[in-house]
């Protein structure tokens, strides 16, 4: 799905989280929002997911205005920073949650839910953990379960908030490739937030460098490295 961010601004009381920013996200792209904390990248992601609403500006999904669309109607697969798995539910129930939450008319039957959850567990290469609770999983496993839970609703886009932030360096590298593979397999338009320029450069098709609520540069990793647009970008990516 093609996403168009059109002059989006966001204030929290007297502080400005986002100055008007515009950004086209081509269908099927894997985009990184890169910047230090306080740059507004998470706010922008949450606006896309419908968890925050902009003070001004518009969001377009496939050229249709989606600015006021409710979080439920957006069908955005959202992976939270600390994964936010439902701690009182097993892995199976976590992944099945979105399917069971559907209105009766579109809810798949029990056998179909079973089939889909098991397929997703295969996709994240953790077929044997269905009956465990989130506390019994490693950090890397939790992240993959969160990804499977988000994919279960057949999302129109995938939004990930620091998906590798809570992991150690070794696991991080492995899961990077995992996310890339899942993105390529599903073809979903995906946006992830990171403060790690290495990660953004290695993983994304398109990198959006942000600072102080503004977009500093949009470009392919190689272009940004070759031609940093501002002093800030040069500094931040360390070339």
């Amino acid at each position: 799905m093609h996403i168009q961010i059109d002059e989006i601004a966001k204030d929290f009381g007297t502080t400005t989280a986002l100055h008007p920013v515009s950004l086209p996200i081509p269908s099927g792209a894997l985009v990184a929002l890169l910047g230090p904390s306080g740059s507004g990248k998470t706010t922008l992601l949450r606006i896309l997911g419908g968890l925050e609403f902009p003070t001004s500006g518009r969001v377009l999904f496939n050229s249709q205005d989606a600015t006021g669309m409710s979080v439920q109607d957006r069908r955005a697969g959202f992976v939270f920073q600390s994964y936010a798995l439902f701690r009182h539910m097993t892995v199976f129930e976590n992944i099945a949650y979105g399917l069971r939450a559907r209105p009766r008319a579109t809810r798949p039957n029990k056998a179909e839910i079973d089939r889909r959850v098991l397929k997703l567990l295969d996709l994240i290469q953790l077929p044997q953990i269905a009956d465990r609770y989130p506390t019994q999983l490693s950090g890397g496993q939790r992240q993959r379960v969160a990804l499977a839970r988000a994919l279960a609703i057949e999302p129109r886009m995938l939004l990930l908030d620091e998906p590798f932030g809570a992991l150690d360096a070794k696991v991080r590298k492995e899961l990077r490739q995992g996310l890339r593979d899942i993105h390529d397999e599903t073809g979903l338009t995906s946006v992830f937030v990171t403060h790690d320029q290495d990660e953004a450069m290695a993983l994304a098709d398109l990198v959006v460098v942000m600072s102080m609520g503004r977009i500093e540069q949009i470009g392919k990793p190689a272009d940004i490295r070759a031609k940093p647009a501002t002093e800030f970008v040069r500094d931040f990516i360390g070339v």
Binding site: V71, Q72, F78, A84, R87, A101, R149
Partner: peptide, 25 residues
């Protein structure tokens, strides 16, 4: 609020989120 937000992004209504996520926690 993260678990509640997760439930909402998965399509659950406010009441369902309260019943299946907030209350058990």
């Amino acid at each position: 609020r993260a678990e509640e937000e997760a439930a909402l992004t998965l399509g659950a209504t406010g009441w369902r989120t309260f019943r299946t996520v907030t209350l058990p926690n």
